[in-house]
Design a binder for these strands. Structure first.
Length: 416
RNA sequence: GCGGAAGUAGCUCAGUUGGUUAGAGCGCCUGUUUGUGGCACAGGAGGCCGUGGGUUCAAUUCCCAUCUUUCGCC
């Protein structure tokens, strides 16, 4: 069973932070690591060579999107996700659970899984607004955001789809709860997620047995911890899943960035220490990355760097800028003179400003290269700082400059 | 020169038989984006309604003149 090995080489005393290596059939991931978002088997606007050059160690694709288009079978016939998209390093797939709730059922209905505007409604009520989407103990029935067609996803089908897609690391199929959900529904969803997790394990084991018969590489499965913002549920979920022998653990759900330290700590304190932890969908802002690592996260994925890049929001060491702003039209300096990325070595803000104003595709590409490099580089440097004991110095210096002293102080006073 | 059409936001236009703070799309300016709907969303600025007279309680709207653009015809 060589599907995944995780070794921890450094721990930071007084925190939950650690540095290590995840070994997969497609190579190693040095942790902490920022996993690049490649939802539809493509990192939007970038070629795999760009991703490689900016230091991306692994890519995370999405089961929901790929099952709808082009279909998991086509990815499988192509030779699996990595071959299909020409990415020969490690790959992850998300289970599709999140998208069933965030896209499939509430798409353009004014109800966003992350919305806090519809106060007082239970998760059940929010779910029911999604028209034809239905969650039962068996699985979730939802409508495609592409053509409205009806689909059902179960723990078993998610495993089958993920094995067909063939990433190195899979996520268990879970139920997302709305931030508006009450404790009663949060518990119900968590319990259901736990039952689903065991069904995922069973199907996953059977599928891996088939791989073994055919001499194919085995795939790893992460259990996904739920429990929203309730400490007892989070700990219960982490304990329950932690005893089931998953290869690693995802931390799911929807919560505010400010809540990362607390929610993550409940979970990572409870999970088995020797397995990698992945924070699902979070890690856009530098503070998220520093705090996530400090509280025990090994890998992050987040689409924000590329999504924001496509809309002109670029990261610099002095904070975020909007490259479309008029003041950049005659600024012939790089986005950041200290940045080592391809874009900052070769292009000016005035040029980027022009590309965005002219709606040229290259703007999205260059902006994505820069933002993704920036975030990957932060996590790389954090990893290095864990190895040589300079984490807190790096954190304080970086955050103070990025957010300004006042805002940074709030992040800095947090300690485990 | 004659006849027709048109002048309203940077651009293309709408403006209900004359009636409160004259609208839209695009553009422009600013902001937002966290298990991805790439090209999205939110907010904002910007008009002596060509010019000058007249009618009227009231004119972007009706009348006259004038300027400009445009189409057709000599």
């Amino acid at each position: 069973m060589t599907k995944l090995h995780f070794t921890i080489s450094h721990k930071l005393p007084g925190t939950l932070a650690r540095a290590g290596v995840i070994q997969t059939p497609h190579g190693a991931i040095q942790t902490p690591a920022f996993i690049v978002g490649g939802t539809k088997a493509t990192v939007k606007a970038l070629t795999p060579q760009h991703v490689y050059d900016l230091g991306g160690q692994a890519v995370l694709a999405n089961t929901y999107h790929l099952m709808l288009q082009p279909g998991a079978e086509i990815v499988q016939r192509a030779g699996g996700l990595g071959v299909f998209m020409h990415w020969d390093r490690p790959t992850f797939t998300d289970s599709g659970g999140f998208q069933v709730f965030s896209l499939g059922m509430a798409y353009k209905k004014g109800i966003d899984a992350t919305s806090h505007s519809q106060k007082g409604e239970s998760a059940q009520a929010v779910h029911s607004h999604g028209q034809l989407a239905k969650v039962t103990d068996e699985g979730a029935t939802f409508r495609s955001h592409l053509d409205g067609s009806t689909h059902t996803m179960t723990p078993e089908s998610s495993m089958e789809l993920q094995h067909a897609i063939g990433a190195d690391i899979h996520m268990a199929f879970d139920e997302l709860t709305s931030p508006l959900a009450g404790r009663e529904y949060i518990k119900k969803a968590m319990d259901r997620t736990h039952v689903w997790a065991e069904r995922c394990l069973a199907r996953h084991a059977a599928l891996n047995a088939e791989h073994q018969e055919h001499g194919e590489p085995l795939q790893a499965l992460y259990g996904v911890v739920q429990g929203a913002r309730e400490e007892d549920y989070r700990r219960e979920s982490a304990a329950f899943l932690g005893e089931r022998g998953f290869d690693g653990y995802g931390i799911g759900g929807v919560f505010e960035p400010e809540e990362i330290p607390e929610v993550v700590r409940w979970v990572t304190e409870t999970l088995p220490e020797d397995r990698p932890r992945h924070l699902l969908g979070m890690g856009a802002q530098p503070a998220d990355l520093f705090l996530g690592v400090e509280y025990g996260i090994d890998t992050f994925d987040c689409v924000a760097p590329t999504r924001q890049a496509r809309n002109g929001a670029l990261y610099t060491y002095d904070g975020r800028i909007n490259i479309r702003n008029q003041k950049f039209s005659q600024d012939f300096t790089p986005i950041s003179s200290e940045c080592g990325c391809y874009v900052c070595q070769n292009f000016t803000k005035a040029y980027l400003n022009h590309l965005f104003k002219a709606d040229e595709m290259l703007g999205a590409t260059l902006a994505s290269i820069h933002n993704e490099w920036f975030v990957v580089h932060i996590v790389d440097t954090i990893r290095e700082s864990l190895r040589n004991g300079t984490f807190f110095a790096y954190k304080e210096q970086f955050l103070a400059r990025y957010y300004g002293a006042d805002r940074a102080a709030a992040f800095l006073k947090l300690r485990v």
